[in-house]
């Protein structure tokens, strides 16, 4: 075999290796980032987060600082509660919460500040309580839980700002209400599936 042919074969084989899929976003992430991304990789959490964010965004922005604070505090309470208690079947309650908040968005009826804060309190606690880091221990666990708190809060702000921005024109408000009905419909369906599976 000539040297040119040998060189060709070596170069050809070197060109063969495929792409290196080293790791997924979660596997390579540190504990903080794992916790931070937790709400967006669990579809039920993401659904409730979007719902709560849109619901807050539908309200008057000047009045929303109190429910936002309640949401943050109750999220942290839920995360702290994971260190002393274990969550069972919380995902179904989260879906039920998403369905209720989705309906509230679709109805878009004026709601008193107390009830807006209550929605934030319940949603925040549920999201926190279902974000346990049971594979981590010690300081690593608290770093992961802190990441979850930051993630839940940050990812709820995006839909809130979107809903606030898109309430200048009637069709924009309608769009947000339609999305609320989609959230409620999806959550109700999966809740029905979960209930039927539990019944069998």
């Amino acid at each position: 075999m000539s040297r040119a042919r040998q060189t060709f074969i070596v170069l050809a084989l070197l060109a063969v290796p495929g792409s290196a899929f080293a790791h997924t976003a979660i596997k390579g992430a540190n504990n903080f980032f794992n916790g931070f991304l937790h709400p967006v990789v669990v579809p039920a959490h993401l659904l409730l987060l979007i719902a709560v964010g849109l619901f807050f965004g539908q309200q008057k922005l000047k009045e929303i600082h109190m429910p936002l604070m309640v949401f943050l505090l109750s999220t942290m309470s839920g995360l702290v509660a994971t260190t002393v208690s274990r969550a069972y079947q919380v995902e179904d309650i989260i879906l039920a919460g998403a369905a209720i908040v989705g309906l509230l968005i679709a109805i878009a009826h004026p709601i008193k500040l107390f009830w807006i804060s209550t929605v934030g309190a319940v949603a925040g606690f549920l999201l926190g309580f279902d974000s346990m880091q049971d594979t981590l221990f010690g300081v690593q666990k608290y770093v992961g839980l802190f990441g979850s708190a930051v993630g839940i809060y940050c990812f709820s702000l995006y839909p809130m700002l979107i809903a606030d921005y898109f309430k200048k024109k009637p069709w924009q408000k309608i769009g947000i209400r339609v999305i609320g009905s989609w959230i409620a419909a999806s959550a109700l369906l999966v809740l029905a599936l979960s209930m039927s599976a539990a019944r069998l």
Binding site: L103, A106, R177, V178, L189, S196
Partner: peptide, 23 residues
């Protein structure tokens, strides 16, 4: 109607879907 119908439809559809899921 332009927005009520598209809001009503998915919500009632979810009810029908729940009936389907539950057999």
């Amino acid at each position: 109607a332009i927005w009520i119908l598209p809001v009503v439809f998915p919500l009632v559809m979810a009810f029908g879907g729940a009936l389907g899921v539950m057999g």
